[in-house]
Design a binder for these strands. Structure first.
Lengths: 117, 117
DNA sequence: TTACTGTATTCGAATGCGCGAATATTCTAA
DNA sequence: TTAGAATATTCGCGCATTCGAATACAGTAA
């Protein structure tokens, strides 16, 4: 199957969108952050996030299917870890982008307020 | 309204997820890439992507509402531009992450194939 | 004014996602 | 083998998202 240049770029954008979709959930972001500290069992993750185990497993399944995390059996537990530290980097970059946005909005709000004084 | 530490972190993750959600669409990624080259009119963007104008406007509206792009009237046209070059950076980082993943999968496929020889 | 170009919005249908609840699976220890 | 702990999966509902089609709106030029 041969794709021309535009189709190849489109396909890449499609895959990239799927990757971003995985990052587009607060629970999954939290899981990635926690796994950034090192491998953890499902139970630990459930405890740390305060979420029900089934929910955590569901989100871990998504991360697993997309190849962002790796699971390993240790006795009766499953230990999850990030497959690539750059996943954490990507999270941090989008977060700093977000913080800048919030900051700018804050400044905007302040300047609007100061104009009214 | 006072939030404790955990709630504040949760709220941040929620906002970050919303930001990622915006990046989780192939058309929007393409628009961001195009706007990375400089400001462009809606018509240009529609042409460059080969998508219908209404669709482009819809996606631009999403980007606008989330503060990723800025719109400016120029005569009868609307010129869109990125509000922050780091948006492009974020796109590029997730893309390189994706490419690494694809590469690794490719290597895996190759090693599986070579084992069977 | 009218006509035209460029852009935005609305609507409805189809699809996809996240969640809780319930259930299944897998491993270990007795 | 049975019991129990840890984890995974399935199902169904409510909600959000995307798209095309149609329509509305804004600015310009005649």
């Amino acid at each position: 199957m041969h794709l021309d240049e535009r189709e190849r770029r489109r396909e890449l954008y499609r895959l990239q969108a799927m990757l971003c979709q995985v990052l587009a959930d607060p629970t999954r972001i939290e899981l990635i952050e926690l796994l950034g500290e090192g491998p953890k069992a499902v139970k630990e993750l459930a405890q740390a996030t305060g979420q029900r185990q089934a929910k955590i497993s569901q989100h871990l399944a998504v991360l697993r299917q997309r190849g962002l995390v790796h699971a390993q059996r240790v006795g009766t537990e499953m230990h999850y870890s990030l497959t690539d530290p750059r996943i954490l980097e990507a999270c941090h970059l989008t977060r700093s982008l977000l913080l800048d946005q919030l900051l700018r909005q804050g400044e905007l709000a302040e300047s609007v307020l100061s104009e009214r004084r």
